[in-house]
């Protein structure tokens, strides 16, 4: 018994070392995935972000057809980067709705003019309240929502060309 006790410190240390080594291999992750995936999208009604597009409400996400909700902002640099990909998705028949975070109508309009416009509707979320209720933690982020209004997939960060198959598959599965 006493023998074992003498080796206990070394064993505790080995445990600690294991945790540290493990931490080195996979450091604390910075991204916080939404826990809303797999559940009904939150209830919300957002006014139009620009005069050219209607606003967005929970009801628009449950019209029987899967949609992509893109959370973006005119002041967000990676949002510009994903525009060509979103436009390509739109050309493939994907219905895309935007939620503009902390944005002014003229800035959103200029953003659409300069970088393209993949959106059917754009809601304006000036104090990120709807973004928070989606469990989203930054811009850009996108959610695949099925015809019944249930969230099927969250994509954190800008959608790149490589991510398209995954998004399309999720949309298809949501039919």
């Amino acid at each position: 018994m006493r023998k074992i006790l003498l080796w206990a410190p070394l064993m505790v240390f080995a445990l600690l070392a294991g945790v540290l080594l493990r931490g080195l291999q996979s450091p604390e992750s910075g991204t916080v995935p939404s826990k809303m995936v797999g559940r009904a999208a939150p209830d919300f009604v957002l006014p139009a972000a620009v005069p050219s597009h209607p606003g967005l409400a929970r009801a628009d996400l449950a019209r029987g057809k899967p949609v992509l909700v893109n959370i973006f902002a005119s002041w967000c640099v990676p949002c510009i980067a994903e525009m060509p990909v979103l436009l390509a998705l739109k050309r493939q028949g994907v219905e895309i709705h935007g939620i503009a975070i902390r944005d002014k109508p003229e800035d959103v309009a200029a953003f659409l003019r300069d970088h393209g416009d993949p959106y059917a509707r754009i809601g304006s979320d000036v104090s990120s309240q709807v973004q928070i209720s989606f469990g989203s933690s930054g811009v850009p982020e996108s959610f695949v929502i099925d015809g019944s209004g249930k969230i099927r997939l969250q994509h954190i960060g800008d959608i790149q060309q490589d991510d398209v198959p995954e998004i399309l598959a999720a949309l298809k599965a949501a039919q």
Binding site: R2, K3, L6, P9, F13, A17
Partner: peptide, 12 residues
Amino acid sequence: GAALTLFALRIG
């Protein structure tokens, strides 16, 4: 690790 091994061997 070395120090704790030494500890276990010697402290008895």
